[in-house]
Amino acid sequence: MPLLHVQDLVLSFSGLKVIQGLNFSVAQGSIASLIGPNGAGKTSVFNCLTGFYRPDSGSIRFAERSILRKKPHTITRQGMARTFQNLRLFKSMTVEENVMSGLHCRTHAGALAAIFQTPGQRREEARVHRISQECLDFVGILDKKDWVAANLPYGDQRRVEWARALATKPKLLLLDEPAAGLNHNEKIELIELIRRIRDELDITILLIEHDMGLVMKVSENITVIDYGQKIAEGSADQIQNDPKVIEAYLGREDDEEA
């Protein structure tokens, strides 16, 4: 049984079908990619998986449980974390506070515990700090933990997003265009980081990416979608030689006439 299994997923916005009967799955422990031309519906798929959009029909099973039409925070709690295409940090808060947000769903202290500062609450706070700092250390920006997030350079803001997602202790990490806006060296670091997340933390990874070089290098399994449907699936080599994929990216002949 795969970790994530999507079947016959349909999503439409006021009559316009964005995803039309999509099927794909992600195996436990793999690094998988979802690619497709602009407007193919990749981010919409992510939004359905993470609960931000409500699909019309279909099934999404994650870790053997249906997560269809669950609220985003419930899905995160069940072990699926995400990053955003255009960064969504808590800009006026510090880097560490940003990462601490990921631990909210793994901690319990309520109002009374906070008012009386019970021993349990203090232990929990200490644990929150410790894990946040471990996550920051993992992505390599622990030295900047007291910076206000908005003041960080772009590449480091991305790292805060990863650290924040890692703090939720996910089974599956969804990365929405992680390489966007990064330079060559940063991309190489990114590939290494993605592999480390999988190998050292045992987290399955699904990413959407435009940078084909990066996708081919890092992914073990690639799903190609166009017009909200799967058109190909397989390893990097299989995908690169698939006529349907080439057609989708380079255009059909009749496209020019239309």
């Binding site: 993470t50 985003p72 925070h73 947000s101 793994r106």
Partner: peptide
Amino acid sequence: QYVREDEDAAEAMGIGR
């Protein structure tokens, strides 16, 4: 504070707004 700054991001971090 998370919810005040960005509801969607807070939801994505597992916080029920």
